[in-house]
């Protein structure tokens, strides 16, 4: 009896240790699976975010938190707005308005991305698009104007579909300007975006507002005009003073392009 008891105790101890070991391994396995799953999700988010910000910026955010410094870059900025949107909104049911707007944004975004542009933000019924960032692009001005012409063509098709449903066609104004900006991730932990800031951005917005005054759909600045060749048919408009600018701006409307890019 005296010999059996220690053996039983030893067996019980071994069994207990084995049980604890198995439980710990299972727990580690579950934790590892959870960690792998979280890591995979993070990588997916990271891959998705690469579309909207330079990869090195994404990695910097992951390693060090939100980057507080920006990079000075030369880019083209495009602002787009629906002409007479307020009246349009009054005439339509809310659901129909959302549907029309979503269809419109889809057409415009596609034309922009097909010309290497990036929709930085939607502002009500308008949007801001960037060319030359997140990926550097020496032909950003050309791409921006080609995108504007593609947007004009896409809107024509979209309007045809609206008219077939007895809905009013949309009219847009596009303003494009280029210049140095500071590009970076701006925001706080809750809300951040990769965007650009600088005088060129404000000027592009002012140019877009002038489309109503000149009653044209595409307006470009002198800086953009200088980067286009003779295949673009442009018309110079009388100089105009805009808010925030001491000197009058010479603007051009783009009528067509000789070749299809």
């Amino acid at each position: 009896m005296n010999a059996v008891l220690p053996i039983l105790l030893a067996v019980a101890l071994v069994l207990l240790l084995a049980f604890l070991l198995v439980r710990a391994r299972r727990r580690i396995g579950r934790l590892r699976a959870a960690l792998n799953s979280a890591s995979l999700e993070l990588q997916q988010v990271q891959m998705a975010f690469h579309r909207f910000a330079p990869r090195r910026v994404v990695e910097e955010i992951i390693r060090q938190g939100i980057s507080i410094h920006g990079e000075r870059q030369e880019v083209s900025i495009m602002f787009v707005d629906i002409v007479g949107f307020t009246k349009l909104a009054e005439r339509m049911e809310a659901e129909q308005l959302v549907e029309v707007l979503n269809g419109y944004f889809e057409c415009m975004s596609l034309a922009i991305s097909q010309h290497r542009g990036y929709v930085s933000k939607f502002i009500g019924d308008g949007l801001m698009a960037l060319f030359g960032t997140p990926h550097s692009n020496r032909w950003h001005a050309l791409d921006a104007v080609w995108a504007a012409l593609a947007m004009r063509a896409a809107l024509k098709d979209y309007n045809a579909s609206l008219e077939s449903r007895n809905l009013d066609p949309l009219e847009i104004g596009i303003g494009i300007h280029c210049g140095p900006v500071v590009a970076g991730v701006i925001g706080n932990q809750q809300l951040m975006e990769f965007t650009v800031i600088g005088d060129a951005v404000n000027t592009a917005a002012r140019i877009e507002a002038q489309t109503r005054f000149h009653q044209v759909d595409i307006l470009i600045s002198q800086a953009i005009r200088q980067q286009l060749d003779e295949k673009f048919r442009v018309r110079e408009l009388p100089p105009i003073t805009v808010k925030g600018k001491r000197e009058a701006l010479t603007l051009f409307t783009v009528e067509s392009y000789a070749d299809r890019p």
Partner: peptide, 8 residues
Amino acid sequence: DHLQTYLS
């Protein structure tokens, strides 16, 4: 030169 500047 034209090609490299204006892509056409």
